[in-house]
Structures are given as C-alpha cells and as structure tokens.
Amino acid sequence: MMAYMNPGPHYSVNALALSGPSVDLMHQAVPYPSAPRKQRRERTTFTRSQLEELEALFAKTQYPDVYAREEVALKINLPESRVQVWFKNRRAKCRQQRQQQKQQQQPPGGQAKARPAKRKAGTSPRPSTDVCPDPLGISDSYSPPLPGPSGSPTTAVATVSIWSPASESPLPEAQRAGLVASGPSLTSAPYAMTYAPASAFCSSPSAYGSPSSYFSGLDPYLSPMVPQLGGPALSPLSGPSVGPSLAQSPTSLSGQSYGAYSPVDSLEFKDPTGTWKFTYNPMDPLDYKDQSAWKFQIL
C-alpha cells in the first residue's frame, strides 16, 4: 500500500520538471525561470610600474599592434585584453584634452560664430520673369535699313540677281523696263511654242516681248482663266512685280493683265486636223540634229 502513496517519478516537459499528477507549474501565473544575472567585471587597478610601461608604449604609438600589447601584458602581468581596453580609454582621454585646449585658446566670443544676415524675399530687387527677354536684342539694338529709291541700282540687283547668272552684270533701268511683257505680243502666236536658250531668258530683255519668248507657250493655258476669275487675268510678269519692288498687295496686282481676252486664246483648236509644230532653235543647249523629232501629229 505504501508504494502507491509515494509520488511517481519526475517528468520533464519543455525542460520543466513536473512532479506526478501536479500540474501547477503549467499555470499561467507561474513564470518561467529567468537567466542568472551576469556579474559585473571588477575594475582593474594599475600600479605605478604598470602605468609607466603603458605610458611609455603610448608615447611611441597610440595604436599598438597585438604583438606589442602581448609583450607589455607579459611585463606588467596583466591579460592582453586589459591592455587593449586601457589604450582605448587613453585615446579617448587624449582627444578630450585636445578639445579642452582648443576651447581655452579661443576667445569668449569666438564660440558663437556670427551668422550672415538672411536676406528677406521682398527687399532684394530681383529681375521680373513675367516678360520673356528678347534673345536677339531686336527691340533695343536692331534698326531696319532704310528703303532705297525705287530706281536705285541696288534694288535692281536684289531683284534680278536671283534669276540671272553670276557672270552677267546687273540690268540697267532701261533693260528692266523691257522685262514687262506686252499683251499683244504674248497673244499673237498662241499655238507656236519656241524653246529659246537659257541665257536669253536671263539677259535678253527682248525675249519677253517677242513671239518667240519663253513664256509665249504658256499663254494658251493662262488666258482661259479670265472668265472664271470674273475680271482681268493676273500676270506674273506684269508691271512692277518684276520691277523695283516685289512687295505689292494682291489688290494692286488684280488690275494688271496680259491684255484683252480673245477667243483665239482658248485651248480649242480651230482646225482639228492641224498639227502643233515646235520651232527648233539652233541655240538650244539640247543638241538634236534631227528636226523631225520636234513634229508630232495630233490624233
């Protein structure tokens, strides 16, 4: 009977010793046993002879290597770790002494450095960015050149030099007046198309007034536009458009034309069986010896 009264063996659950049927240790109110408190290391007290050895090595170098620390530790009968900690504390003490010396050398008012006064946003004049500046400075420094007289040679050079070769001289006033084509001369031969040399188009003023001019072949195509416009036809070669000034309004060009419109200028042929003959000019830059190549039959 006494065997049943004795408590059973101890069981360990999660490293906790349980005594038989008792489960009081598993209750929430019972805390787990805490780790033992780490003991504080005792402070090391250095003797005068030990301090002399350490100070002598510190005077040589503030960062001794492990071999120098072990050698000193053997002399003063201390572990190497204590020597390492002593050098660490000695360097910190040396830095603190240097900072105190710097503070003593500075004057009393030198510690508080005078800061520059901050400028207020409204006091300083700042350039306004509302208006974009002129990058080319046209509004201040540029002045347009004065327009020359209508009959000045410089204007003629600016007008005619675009179309004339570089080897030719500017046309005088008398020749510029001949550039304007007359109405009857352009409409006299509506079906004849003559190819003149390129030099005649640039230099010869008579080429624009003769039936064999460069633009005589364009007349049949330009004249039928007159009834559609409801007024006189516009002429690209009329009046002052080739003269001194090219800047004319469309209203000033509306009254200039080749001449009176005639039914002869239409595109319809009077004789459907007729042929169109292209007159060959020996001055043509295209060297075609066979003139029969310039004739064709309209079917």
Score class of each variant (00 low, 15 high):
H27V: 15
A189N: 04
A92Q: 07
W294Y: 00
M193R: 09
S238F: 15
S262H: 05
P250T: 04
I138F: 04
R82G: 13
E53A: 09
Q103I: 05
R43D: 11
V264Y: 03
A17C: 08
E173D: 09
P135I: 08
R69F: 11
N281I: 15
S164F: 15
D65C: 05
N89A: 14
S169H: 02
L237A: 02
S22D: 02
M283L: 11
M193K: 02
L25I: 06
N89L: 14
I298Y: 01
K270F: 02
A117H: 05
P33K: 05
V264M: 04
P79D: 03
Q104L: 04
S167G: 06
A200R: 06
A3Y: 14
Y208L: 04
S254A: 06
Y191I: 06
P135K: 09
V264W: 13
R119Q: 02
Y261A: 03
A17W: 12
M193T: 00
P250Q: 08
P172C: 08
L222K: 03
E268A: 10
Q39A: 10
Y261F: 09
L267G: 00
A207G: 03
K75W: 15
E42W: 10
F215G: 01
Q175L: 13
P285W: 08
L25D: 01
S182W: 12
I76L: 11
L222G: 02
I138T: 03
A15F: 11
A17N: 01
T155D: 02
A56G: 09
N281A: 13
A92C: 10
E168K: 11
Q228E: 02
E80I: 06
P36S: 07
N6L: 15
P240Q: 09
P135Q: 08
L229M: 04
T159K: 08
T275I: 07
Y221M: 03
A174I: 06
V85A: 13
G217Y: 12
S169Y: 07
V160S: 03
P250L: 13
G255Q: 05
A3F: 15
P125K: 11
A189S: 05
D130S: 08
R91T: 13
S245M: 07
R90E: 13
S206M: 10
S223R: 12
G110I: 08
Y208A: 01
L246W: 11
E71A: 10
S212H: 11
S213N: 04
K289G: 01
P125T: 04
S141D: 02
M283F: 14
Y142I: 11
L222A: 00
D65Y: 15
P240T: 07
S266F: 12
R40M: 13
S164G: 01
S203Y: 11
G183H: 11
P149S: 07
P165L: 10
P153L: 13
L186N: 05
P125M: 06
S266T: 07
S257I: 11
P232K: 14
G109L: 03
S238Y: 11
S238W: 12
P227V: 15
F269A: 01
Q105V: 05
G109M: 01
F87P: 15
T47H: 09
P224C: 12
G20R: 10
G178K: 12
R69K: 09
R115Y: 00
K102W: 00
P79G: 07
K75C: 11
R37F: 08
S210Y: 12
S203L: 14
D265C: 15
G109V: 04
Q97P: 11
G183E: 01
P220G: 04
P165I: 14
K120C: 00
S266M: 10
R43P: 14
D134S: 09
V131T: 06
R115Q: 02
L16F: 10
P21D: 02
E55C: 09
L234R: 06
K270E: 12
Q104S: 09
D65N: 11
K289C: 07
D134F: 06
G20M: 10
A200K: 08
Y280K: 03
L54I: 15
P197Y: 15
T273N: 03
T123W: 04
A15Q: 01
P64R: 14
R95C: 15
P33H: 08
F58A: 12
F296Y: 01
P107Q: 07
R95M: 13
N77L: 08
A174R: 12
A114C: 05
P79C: 06
L253F: 07
Q175V: 12
K102M: 03
Q97E: 09
Y288M: 08
S241N: 06
Q84L: 11
S143F: 12
Q39S: 04
F201M: 02
S139L: 06
K270S: 08
P190Y: 15
F215V: 03
L18K: 00
Q248F: 15
T275K: 08
M5W: 09
V131C: 06
A117V: 09
P227D: 01
F87I: 14
L51V: 10
L54K: 13
S252I: 10
L237E: 00
L186Q: 00
S203G: 06
A17P: 01
F215S: 01
N14G: 05
M26R: 07
L267D: 00
A59E: 07
V85D: 12
S139D: 08
V264T: 01
M193S: 00
V264H: 06
G231S: 03
E80Y: 06
F58K: 15
S150R: 10
Q248P: 01
W86H: 14
G109A: 09
D134H: 11
L253M: 04
A198I: 11
G151P: 12
Y280T: 00
P240F: 13
P108I: 07
L218Q: 01
